[in-house]
Design a binder for these strands. Sequence first.
DNA 1: TGGTTTCATAACCTTATGGTTATTTAATGG
DNA 2: CCATTAAATAACCATAAGGTTATGAAACCA
Lengths: 128, 128
Amino acid sequence: MKPTSHGQLTSSRLDATFAALADPTRRAILARLASGEASVAELAEPFAMSQPAISKHLKVLERAGLISSGVDAQRRPRRLEAAPLAEANAWMEKYRQFWEANFERLDAVLEELKTLEATEPTTRRKKK
Amino acid sequence: MKPTSHGQLTSSRLDATFAALADPTRRAILARLASGEASVAELAEPFAMSQPAISKHLKVLERAGLISSGVDAQRRPRRLEAAPLAEANAWMEKYRQFWEANFERLDAVLEELKTLEATEPTTRRKKK
DNA sequence: TGGTTTCATAACCTTATGGTTATTTAATGG
DNA sequence: CCATTAAATAACCATAAGGTTATGAAACCA
């Protein structure tokens, strides 16, 4: 794919963060790291997946800045670096009103359904 | 890719949401829709991209539940359905302490740098 | 009716993603 | 030194993702 092209200049961090979070294995790895640093083998243990596959996932997380790597003998313990989540969270905050509104609207709809019957008999709106 | 396999049963919604958010074009589309519903042509206008490409992005957003489609003559106006962001936000909340802690730690580090010099002379930790 | 507008779909291409096995590198401990 | 352990890297494969152009379908309007 061509490099972004259309503008949206500084989005690559968010791209990487959201993309990293889009995989359940990687989210599980982050969950594990939330309870303390762990070696690659330890991180791989719960998964029916080869060690190199886990290493790839770790690389994705690392490139997104969500984890970092230490050195302990042959081990390369990973630890959580949740800072990029702050940016992702900031992005989501802009939409908070919408999903909160949606829940309110759902409540309203449920309330409406108790009291009122069919109002618009298959209204076919024309033009705008 | 095999179907998840390892567990994490109900993650596909989150997968779809985060994956949808991982593209700057799609985030820009959501931003546009935050100021009201819009036709496909209107959504496509800011981008140096063909209309089918935009339609594909819309399909991704739709499958993630982030937008929905209406009918108005030939137009198929899309509107924002931010509800899936609630789930994503809930997921991130679990890590809030970590990225907030990171900022606090950064503050602490900056504070430390003002007062103290080299403490650990190239400490090479052995074993655990 | 028939042309125009609006969008979706199909077919195709290229690159990215997620996995595999096999091999290499690095550091430890005897 | 050498065998072992831990993880990275390479090479490969199948499928998904993001784009293109060309075509089709549905609803309007003159």
